[in-house]
Write a protein that binds this DNA or RNA. Sequence first.
DNA 1: TAGATTGTTAATCGATTAACAATC
DNA 2: TAGATTGTTAATCGATTAACAATC
Lengths: 239, 239
Amino acid sequence: MQKTNSENKQNSKHLPPSVKERLPKYYRTLRALIGTDILRTSSGELGKIMKLTPSQVRQDFSYLGGVGHQGYGYNVKDLYSVIGNAIGIPLNYSAIIVCRKTDFASVLSTDQCFSTRGVNLKMIFTDKCGDFTPSELMKFEDSKKEKLTEQITNQAYLRAADYCRRTGTEIVVLACDKDETDIAAIALADAGVRGIWNFSGKDIEIKDKNISVLNLNLHDILLGICSEITNIRQNLPNE
Amino acid sequence: MQKTNSENKQNSKHLPPSVKERLPKYYRTLRALIGTDILRTSSGELGKIMKLTPSQVRQDFSYLGGVGHQGYGYNVKDLYSVIGNAIGIPLNYSAIIVCRKTDFASVLSTDQCFSTRGVNLKMIFTDKCGDFTPSELMKFEDSKKEKLTEQITNQAYLRAADYCRRTGTEIVVLACDKDETDIAAIALADAGVRGIWNFSGKDIEIKDKNISVLNLNLHDILLGICSEITNIRQNLPNE
DNA sequence: TAGATTGTTAATCGATTAACAATC
DNA sequence: TAGATTGTTAATCGATTAACAATC
C-alpha cells in the first residue's frame, strides 16, 4: 500500500522541527486576521505579516496537506482550524502552575495565556502562600496574596505532582527554586505529566521521550539581548 | 593586508547566528563549573553537559579565536571571560522594566535575572502602581504593592522613554498592554533605547537595524508545548 | 480566457558532524 | 614519548528560497 507524497506530508510525524516551531505564530496571526474579519489570505500576505518568504509559507503549509486553493489562496478559518488541530487545541489540555509566590502565577493569569489558547488552568500551587484556583487568585488581585488556611507542610511541587496524578493534568508550569528543579521534574514525570514549561533557571534533562520539556531561561534571554546590542555596535563602525 | 582565517573568525562580525544563540548557555554552564571549582574542561565535557557534540563545541569556540590549548582543553575562567566579552558583560548595560502591575517586575527581580548577569536594573515603571527603584519594590514585597504618591497622569511607557532618554538606559523590558505595544516601541526607539525585551504579546517590528528586539510570546510558547505533546502521542502508536 | 496563487521539485544556503593533522 | 585534545577542513544534513507546472 504505497503512500503518495501528499499523504506522507499530511502525517504529522513528518513535520520538520523548524516548521513545528512556526505553527504557534501562524495560529496567532490567523487568529488576529479572524479578529479583523479577514477571511481569505495568501502565502504572500501571511509572509508579509510574519516576515517570511511566500515560498516558505507554502512549503510549511504543504506539510499540513492540501489546505489552500490554487488561484484563490487560503480560507483563514479553515487554515486556523487545520493548524489548531496540528497543535492539538481540540484536545483541551489541562495545566497547573507551581511557583514560590503568587506574583508569578498572577503574571501568567493576567496574560490570559491559557484561557485564549484552549488550555484549562486548573490550579496554582505556591510554596509560600498556599494553593489557589485561578478564580481565587484573581479575587486576591491587588491585595496581599496569602491564603494559609492550613499549615503548609510540604513543597508545592509535591502537592502539584499528587494533583496531576489524581486528575491526569498534562501540563505543568514550573517556577520552583533551582535547588528543587531536578527532584520536582522526577516527581512530575512520575505523576504522568506530559509537558513541563520550566522557568526555574536550571535546565531539566529528561531521558523519557514521552515527556516534552521547554527550558525557558530568563538569564539566557537577557544575555542574548546584551549580545545583540554589543554586536550591533561593534559592527557598525568598521567598513 | 590579508587577514588569516583565524583573524577573521575572531572578529565578532562573523559570529553565525546559531553560535551567537548558544553563547548565553555556554556562559551559564561555565559559571556553574566555576561555582563548583572545576577550572579546566574540554569540548567533550561541555558537550556532555550541554547536549552538544564535542565537534560543535570546538567549532563554536573557534569563532572566538584560539581560546583552548591542544592536549589540555579549556581554562574555564579564561573561556568564561572570553564569552562574557563577546556578549558584552563588561559594558555594564542598564535596564528598566515597564509593566502594568508590580507582579511582573517582582518576578524578574526575584529571579535575579539582572543582578547575576551584570545588568543594572535601575527603575520599574508601572501603569497602575507608580514607579519604583528595585530596592523600593523589594521593600513592598509580600504586601500590597501600590505607591501612588502623586497622581499618575500618563502611561508608564512615556515616563520610561523619558527616563531612558535622560539616562542613556540601553535595555527595556516591556510588558505593556498589546494596544500600546506599537506606540511604546516607537517612543522607546526614539529615546535611544538599544534593546527591547517584549513580553506584551504583540510582536514589535522595528526597521531600525540599530535596535535589537526580542519578542517573547508566552502564548506561542504554551502552544509549542501543546504541539510537542500532541505530536509525541500521535507518533508513538504507528509502526 | 487571463490573472492569481497554490503545491512541489530543484537549487542554494547555512549549520552540524566527522575526520584528522597539529601540538601541548 | 604516548595520550589527549584542540582547531580546521571536508562531508553531511536540514532548512530556506527560487522556479514553475497545475489549476482555480
